[in-house]
Each structure stands twice: as C-alpha cells, then as structure tokens.
C-alpha cells in the first residue's frame, strides 16, 4: 500500500512540475514567437518550398 501511495503522490507532484518547467522553458526560448516561420521548418535550401520530393511512381521521370 505505501508503495502505491508513494508512486501516486510522487506522480501528482512530478507531472505538473515538469509541465510547468516545459512551459517556462518554451516561453523563455522564444518558441511562441514567429509561428509562421515555424511552419517552414521542414524545408531548407536543398529541399525548398515549392519542390516535390517523392515522385517515384506514375512514370514521372527527371
């Protein structure tokens, strides 16, 4: 019984603490600024916006 109580109470405290730390970090690291710039993260100079990257079927030859 004490084992469970330890785990339960420990988790109840630990989870919000971790969550708040993550939130504080995110705000401090500027994660909430420039949301539109974030949408471009999958792209770079070698695979920029506007270029398809997986044409391998349907006889599309390059």
């Amino acid at each position: 019984m004490p084992v469970i109580a330890f785990i339960l109470l420990g988790s109840v405290v630990l989870l919000p603490v971790v969550a708040l730390w993550a939130l504080r970090w995110a705000a401090a690291a500027g994660q909430f600024r420039c949301p539109d710039k974030a949408a471009l993260l999958p792209f770079d100079e070698s695979e920029p916006v506007g270029v398809e990257t997986d044409c391998i079927l349907g006889g599309n030859r390059r």
Binding site: S11, L15, P16, A19, L20, L23, A26, A27, F32
Partner: peptide
C-alpha cells in the same frame, strides 16, 4: 499564448 498553455498543462496531470 503562454497563459493558455499554462492552463492546459496543469489540467494534463
């Protein structure tokens, strides 16, 4: 934004 996220995070646990 941060205020909104704060509320959501606390409710997570």
């Amino acid at each position: 934004g941060p205020l909104l996220f704060l509320g959501i995070l606390l409710t997570l646990a």
